[in-house]
């Protein structure tokens, strides 16, 4: 019997039966993006095969909402911009320091920066990164306001 249990245990080594915590957005700052369910296990992997699953049961999440976050003083009406910054803040920060990227392009588009002025805009954001992302606890509203502040400076 001992031997049997040993074998069963062995087979289960890679198999972690605790499974799937739902994904959720948490917060309005860095690292607030969706977090995956814990499916890096064997059985988790198998189960994912059979689901192609979406976790979270929101059906038409056309707007993701930013109700839990502070509102910026600028672009108050631009819900889409705010949602985008909340959901993509980490990649936006990375694109700003690198000076290019799809997230940065989207951000510029939402701010209505004409294409021919983007290069200049990106350079400016890059140079003022420290003044935009002032702390690791920064939130969406401050990011937007700081960007506006930097852009209006000469």
């Amino acid at each position: 019997m001992k031997k049997f249990l040993f074998t069963v245990l062995f087979v289960l080594i890679c198999v972690n039966l605790s499974f799937a915590t739902a994904r959720k957005n948490s917060g309005c700052g860095l690292g607030a993006m969706l977090i995956s369910p814990n499916n890096d296990t064997l059985v988790g992997n198998l189960a994912m095969t059979f689901l192609n699953g979406t976790f979270g049961t929101q059906t038409f999440g056309i707007t993701t909402g930013t109700s839990e976050c502070d509102k910026p003083t600028h672009f108050v009406k631009n819900e889409r911009l705010q949602e985008f910054v909340v959901a993509n803040m980490d990649n936006l920060a990375k694109d700003i320091v690198v000076g290019k990227g799809e997230t940065l392009d989207s951000f510029a588009e939402l701010l209505n920066i004409p294409v021919d002025q983007r290069k200049e805009f990106y350079a400016k954001l890059h140079d003022s990164f420290m003044r935009i992302f002032t702390s690791e606890n920064i939130q969406m509203a401050e990011v937007i306001d700081n960007v506006v502040l930097e852009m209006t400076k000469n």
Binding site: L30, A93, V97, Y122, A123, F129, F133, E136, N137
Partner: peptide, 17 residues
């Protein structure tokens, strides 16, 4: 994550695009 990520990005922002 928040702390290190921002530190790394800040350093990167001091180097050119």
């Amino acid at each position: 994550y928040q702390k290190r990520y921002l530190q790394v990005l800040r350093a990167r922002s001091q180097l050119p695009i």
